[in-house]
Design a protein around this nucleic acid. Structure first.
Length: 691
RNA sequence: GCGAGAGUGGCGGAACAGGCAGACGCACCGGACUUAGGCUCCGGCGGUUCACACCGUGGGGGUUCAACUCCCCCCUCUCGCACCA
């Protein structure tokens, strides 16, 4: 019996045991072969894999195995993105500890991965919740702090009431928490920020290096998110000083339209909104407007159906070039956190300003003439380029040179300058949660804020705490942790109890794999030089901005801190964003009751069938619908392959039998078979060519 | 509105670089094996047609000996962004 029957469990158990015993896929840092680093985005140890993971890792495993067969020294590691909120929530629910829950899940998921037969180098496995890992993250934090790339500030922050923590801008999707989809509110808090904006230009410009290897849409999304605009900042002197201010600064991308300014609009959150109200006899009306707009739900306020409205403050600024009086308004459409929170109103050449001017009967002055003829009457703003008119000394200039000329003139007059604005904001990395890497600073009554000393790292997250049922962090109540000695004066001090955003851990893990067991330093420079960048990175498109932007930033920052060699500026040379595994046209989810568990499928068909189907069902970057009858086909296919080999075994010549030595002994059938084999190998090689 | 991607049998999808459209799989049909088959194996399977043949890759034009593939115009769908001044 049975050799003719395909028995996946027997085959897989046998080989997996052998691979494990020999650590068969260990990569060698000192190897002379060309290197190839293939990496799949590491998982959060939730307890179970879903089909999306299986698809992701199966794609990566094919790349790794093909590259090995092609003679490359392949690094294909795996680890665990192990800090994070679900562990705390599960701990509360199951009356356990986040660490216990996390490590148990890692053990079970590691076993699942081995059963799936992936060719990982297990000797490099990492878990980000271990002090051996996050101690280096704390080191990076201290160095970034020293360099001014980490700072503390109080500002309105995205607050998720359900997760009891702040969120970075990147973690707010359509006004909802990226993890639990609760509505995000605003809260004034003092938080730690990473100055990602200092790298805005480089993050944008280096996208050009990724054009070959990254999907265009991911590049477009990053470009969009960074949102660089060039233009000018312009100072409008106030007719009378208000709240200690003598002028209001605005940013504009169209300094060529400066002579068309007929009003100015401030966000209701602008620092001068209240002083302006105070100075006006209609103070109550202005305050009521500002408060109403400020109190609006973020989502509603950003709706594109929202009508523009505003209120006149009674005050005037003076046009920097003509000296004309420019009325100051508050407006609901001006964003407080972009630019200066104030804009100049050019109704003739900006649709928003046009709408606003129509509603409040403000004058419209055309200063850009499209192709000669100025329009007799305007139904809409003319936002295109043209020739400057009614613009004093600049009359007759084209828009593009006009923009530069106006900016230059403003600068000469001390009334402004050429300027660049980013949409990208600094990254808030403080989290008011327990299960994360402690931020290594202390607060001392005498010395103030003091960084922990590097030789005292890691600041270990205490494990002997009891999780609170209200979801709040137990750290502030953990006295042994909080009470400490000041690294500077040795007096009594208190530790920071916020932890770091888990996206900090995932921003550098790919580099740690190159030297994962190094206890003295985060990396070995030779190992980094040899392995980086990752040649092929694979993961879901949901990280197009979040993780992929942070990791790109970290790579540049670590380079400038001297941790990375200077030639490493981008972490991932090629990126594949794999499609989702759907069921019945939608996401698999517990609530829909349509989850197909990989373990069940492996029990029924074996790991190879599950992997084969995940690869076969659709091209890697496209979504596909899970099909129960489809996987039957993959299973039948493997059965056929096995049976064919088993039945023909006696007639199949050993490898090499086709060589010259065997000569004419080979019959036509064998020759034909060997030819087919080579054609198949060639085809497979060509199909893998894109990697 | 802006950006990206996709439209090919009943379905998922092939077709490298302009050269036999529909590989492979699912479903379906016929046959074999079988007490039975929901297992397995063999064969068939774009449309019209008895056949010859003709038509056929979202629609319309074009280039070419030859177009799913290249060019122009249009339609539909998916995803991302969107009052960023």
């Amino acid at each position: 019996m049975s050799q003719n029957h395909y028995r996946p469990r027997d085959i897989e158990d046998k080989w997996q045991a052998r691979w494990l015993a020999r650590n068969a896929f260990a990569a060698d840092n000192g190897d002379a072969r060309p290197k190839y680093y293939v990496l799949e985005m590491f998982p959060y140890p939730s307890g179970n894999f879903h089909m999306g993971h299986v698809r992701n890792y199966s794609i990566g495993d094919v790349v790794a195995r093909v590259r090995r067969m092609q003679g490359f020294n392949v690094l294909h590691p795996m680890g665990w993105d192990a800090f994070g909120l679900p562990a705390e929530n599960a701990a509360i629910k199951n009356r356990t500890h986040p660490a216990a829950w996390t490590y148990a899940n890692i053990a079970s998921m590691r076993a699942q991965l081995r059963r799936l037969g992936y060719s990982y180098d297990w000797s490099r496995e990492i878990a980000t919740c271990r002090p051996e890992y996050y101690r280096f993250e704390q080191l990076f934090f201290l160095r970034l702090l020293r360099k001014g790339l980490v700072y503390r500030k109080k500002a309105p922050q995205n607050w998720c009431p359900s997760c009891h923590t702040v969120l970075a801008n990147e973690q707010v999707v359509d006004g909802l928490c990226w993890r639990c989809e609760s509505r995000v509110t605003q809260k004034d808090l003092t938080q730690w920020f990473v100055k990602i904006t200092a790298y805005g230009d480089e993050l944008l410009n280096d996208l050009a290096l990724l054009e070959e290897g990254w999907p265009e849409r991911v590049i477009a999304m990053q470009r969009n998110w960074i949102g660089r605009s060039t233009g000018a900042s312009v100072k409008f002197p106030l007719e009378r000083p208000v709240g200690g201010a003598r002028e209001i600064e605005v940013f504009t991308t169209r300094p060529d339209t400066l002579y068309g300014v007929t009003f100015m609009t401030l966000a209701p959150e602008h620092a001068l909104a209240e002083p302006l109200a105070e100075a006006c006899e209609r103070a109550a009306e202005i305050r009521a407007f500002a408060e109403r707009i400020r109190g609006m739900d973020r989502l509603d306020r950003q709706a594109d159906t929202l009508e523009k409205e505003g209120v006149f403050t009674g005050a005037y600024a003076l046009h920097p070039l003509t000296g004309e009086r420019v009325p100051l308004w508050l407006g609901n459409f001006v964003l407080a956190d972009y630019g200066t929170g104030a804009v100049m109103g050019v109704p003739a050449h900006d649709q928003r300003d046009f709408d606003f001017a129509r509603k409040y009967r403000l004058p419209v002055r055309a200063v850009i003439s499209p192709a000669g003829e100025p329009p007799a009457s305007m139904e809409a703003a003319f936002t295109g380029e043209g020739r400057m008119v009614n613009s004093g000394r600049f009359d007759g200039m084209e828009s593009a040179p006009g923009r530069e000329a106006v900016a230059r003139f403003l600068e000469e007059q001390g009334k402004g300058r050429a300027a660049v604005q980013f949409r990208l904001r600094d990254w808030n990395i403080s989290r008011q949660r327990y299960w994360g890497a402690p931020i290594p600073v202390v607060y001392c009554d005498r010395c103030g804020l003091v960084p922990e000393r590097e030789e005292r790292l890691p600041v270990v997250l205490p494990l002997d705490v009891t999780t609170r049922h209200d979801g709040r962090s137990p750290l502030p109540g953990a006295e042994d942790f909080v009470n400490c000695l000041c690294p500077s004066c040795g007096g009594e001090a208190r530790r920071e109890t916020d932890t770091m955003d888990t996206f900090v851990e995932s921003s550098w893990y790919f580099a740690r794999y190159t030297d994962a067991r190094n206890a003295d330093a985060p990396f070995d420079e030779r190992a980094l030089r040899y392995w980086l960048p990752v040649d092929q990175y694979i993961g879901g498109v949901e990280h197009a901005i979040l993780h992929l932007l942070y990791a790109r930033f970290f790579t540049k920052a670590l380079r400038d801190l001297g941790f990375f060699p200077p030639e490493i500026s981008e972490p991932f040379a090629r990126l594949l964003t794999q499609g989702m595994v759907l069921k019945d046209g939608g996401k698999m989810s517990k609530s829909r009751g349509n989850v197909v568990a990989p373990t069940e499928m492996m029990d029924r068909y074996g790991a190879d069938t599950v992997r084969l189907f995940c690869l076969f069902a659709a091209p890697p970057e496209r979504d596909f619908d899970w099909s129960d009858s489809g996987i039957e086909g993959s299973s039948r296919f493997l059965h056929r392959v096995w049976r064919l080999f088993a039945e023909e075994k006696g007639r199949i010549l050993p490898l090499g039998a086709c060589g010259a030595a065997a000569g004419d002994a080979i019959n036509d059938d064998a020759r034909d078979l060997r030819r087919k084999e080579h054609l198949a190998v060639k085809k497979a090689g060509e199909d893998m060519g894109r990697f």
